[in-house]
Measured scan of single mutants.
Amino acid sequence: RGITCLDHENEKVNMYCVSDDQLICALCKLVGRHRDHQVASLNDR
């Protein structure tokens, strides 16, 4: 089922925000508060 995003409840987390040490979803990176932050794919970890 996967872990859902805290900010976007219908989205699954699939990225890690290095700047905030937090799991995020694609919407967080595209339009959310993490858009200018350094992120890594969970597949890279």
Rank of each mutant, 00 (worst) to 15 (best):
R1K: 05
G2S: 09
G2Y: 12
G2M: 09
G2A: 07
I3H: 06
I3V: 06
I3Y: 13
I3E: 12
T4M: 10
T4D: 07
C5M: 02
C5R: 01
L6T: 15
L6C: 13
L6V: 12
L6H: 13
L6Q: 15
D7I: 11
D7S: 06
D7N: 08
D7R: 05
D7F: 09
D7G: 03
D7Q: 07
H8T: 01
H8A: 02
H8C: 03
H8K: 01
H8D: 03
H8E: 02
H8S: 01
E9P: 15
E9R: 11
E9D: 12
N10H: 10
N10P: 03
N10A: 03
N10D: 09
E11R: 06
E11Y: 14
E11K: 03
E11G: 05
E11C: 10
K12C: 03
K12G: 08
K12W: 05
K12T: 09
K12E: 14
K12A: 09
V13S: 09
N14A: 11
N14M: 02
M15S: 12
M15L: 11
Y16S: 06
C17S: 07
C17K: 11
C17Y: 01
C17A: 04
C17F: 14
V18C: 12
S19H: 14
S19A: 14
S19N: 09
S19T: 12
S19D: 06
D20N: 02
D20H: 02
D20W: 00
D21M: 04
D21Q: 07
D21L: 01
D21W: 00
D21V: 01
D21T: 07
D21Y: 01
Q22L: 06
Q22Y: 04
Q22R: 14
Q22P: 03
Q22C: 04
Q22E: 08
L23W: 10
L23K: 15
L23R: 12
L23A: 14
L23H: 09
L23V: 12
I24R: 03
I24C: 02
I24H: 06
I24P: 15
I24K: 08
C25Y: 00
C25T: 01
A26E: 12
A26H: 06
A26P: 11
A26V: 06
A26R: 12
L27E: 15
L27F: 14
L27M: 11
L27V: 12
L27S: 13
C28P: 02
C28V: 00
C28K: 00
C28D: 02
K29F: 07
K29Y: 09
K29A: 13
K29R: 13
L30F: 11
L30N: 13
V31Y: 08
V31W: 03
V31G: 14
G32T: 03
G32F: 00
R33C: 04
R33T: 11
R33L: 10
H34F: 06
R35C: 08
R35M: 11
R35H: 02
D36L: 08
D36F: 02
D36W: 04
D36S: 07
H37V: 03
H37K: 15
H37E: 04
H37N: 03
Q38H: 05
Q38V: 11
Q38A: 08
V39Q: 09
V39M: 07
A40G: 11
A40C: 09
S41Q: 13
S41W: 02
L42T: 08
L42C: 15
L42I: 08
L42M: 10
N43Q: 10
N43C: 08
N43S: 11
D44T: 08
D44C: 02
D44M: 06
R45G: 15
R45E: 15
R45Q: 12
R45I: 10
